[in-house]
């Protein structure tokens, strides 16, 4: 097991190194930072001074090593736009992104699993066909357009929920969060629903196929023969067995949720890290974009690593492949 973990850790490190080279090449070599930052009235000396200040006059390999060692020290530089350390900017906006993500995942699980189990148990009913059609529609509507429909319906026509911003926040252990007061929570609802629709469709499909597999197992028949009531059979025997793959995929999809939060946060002007990324791309705020990309890479590599190790723990065949 230890050798598997070490080998997998080695692969992950190589992956991070490759990504750091790609990000460095993309952000530092393809676009010339001196050209971006220099004003029209800059002389040749000014340009050289700027290049020295930014460290781009040195050979590429030196620049890359400096880039790498700064990251290792947690120093991502200072934002061109906000003139503040990038790490602070990102950490400050992270809670806003996470609280919407958690609400969206909860909605997906709470609505998706019951609908999926119902569809799996009642294959020929009309409601099942409607659910199946609705999930196809849900999959087909682009995330950003759903957001616009939600704004149009709830904010413009019905005027029941706010369409943008974060609203009031309450401090929880020193971190401002929105979900503890009504104004903040009402601002959270539309972005969360927007992220949740895809999750609901996915959870429904997952739990439906899980149910269809489990319901014909011998232990289900046996439980029924023992005279266990239907609700108890669903809760104790069915749900427990379909939950494992659902939890795994929900964990894996966490990254996808953070990725899609760029879209949702932009539409709803939700001040999280996704909106920060988009704004930074538009303002050519390179240090922020680089920090975000490196951070996301680390996050994905970690998620994949943890999942692989867990799988190897659960299934010994993987270890010896």
């Amino acid at each position: 097991m230890l050798s598997f973990i070490l080998r997998r850790l080695g692969q992950s490190s190589v992956l991070v190194l490759i990504m750091s080279v790609l990000v460095f090449a993309g952000m530092y070599v393809v676009s010339d930072p001196v050209a971006v930052l220099a004003g029209d009235d800059f002389t040749e000396e000014d340009r050289q001074a700027l290049a020295r200040e930014l460290g781009v006059d040195k050979p590429l390999i030196t620049q890359y090593l400096v880039f790498l060692s700064n990251i290792a020290k947690g120093d991502f530089g200072v934002s061109f736009v906000y003139n503040r350390p990038v790490l602070d900017l990102i950490l400050e906006r992270l809670p806003a992104t996470l609280e919407v993500a958690v609400l969206a995942i909860s909605m997906g699980l709470i609505l998706g699993i019951p609908m999926g189990i119902y569809s799996g148990l009642n294959r020929e009913k009309k409601a099942t066909k409607s659910i199946s059609f609705l999930t196809t529609v849900g999959y087909s509507i682009p995330n950003f357009w759903q957001a616009l429909l939600l704004i149009l319906l709830c904010s413009v026509w019905l005027k029941i929920l706010p369409a943008s911003g974060r609203g009031d926040t309450t401090d929880l252990f020193g971190i401002p969060v929105s979900f503890l007061n009504w104004d903040g929570f009402s601002h959270m609802l539309l972005p969360a629903v927007n992220l949740a629709i895809y999750k609901i469709c996915m959870q429904t499909r997952l739990s439906r196929s899980g149910t269809q597999e489990v319901m014909y197992q011998d232990y289900m028949t046996f439980a029924r023969a023992k005279g266990i009531s239907k609700m108890r059979r669903i809760r104790r025997h069915l749900l427990r067995n379909i939950l494992l793959p659902i939890v795994t995929i929900t964990g894996l999809e966490l990254g996808g949720l953070i990725a899609f939060s760029t879209v949702t946060e932009t539409v709803f002007s939700w001040p999280g890290i996704g909106k920060l990324l988009l704004d930074s791309i538009h303002h050519a705020d390179r240090p922020v974009v680089v920090a975000y990309l490196i951070g996301i890479t680390l996050m994905f590599v970690t998620i994949n690593f943890v999942v692989d190790v867990l799988y190897a723990l659960l299934d010994p065949r993987i270890r010896y492949k």
Binding site: L15, I18, M19, V23, G26, M27, V30, S31, G255, G256, A259, F260, T262, V263, L277, I281, V289, L293, I296, F300, V301, N304
Partner: peptide, 20 residues
């Protein structure tokens, strides 16, 4: 594997952020 470990939309955003 490298490509598949990132969600598509994020990868596209990265590339467009780099290359315009």
């Amino acid at each position: 594997d490298l490509k598949m470990s990132f969600p598509g939309i994020l990868l596209a955003l990265m590339l467009l952020a780099m290359f315009g």
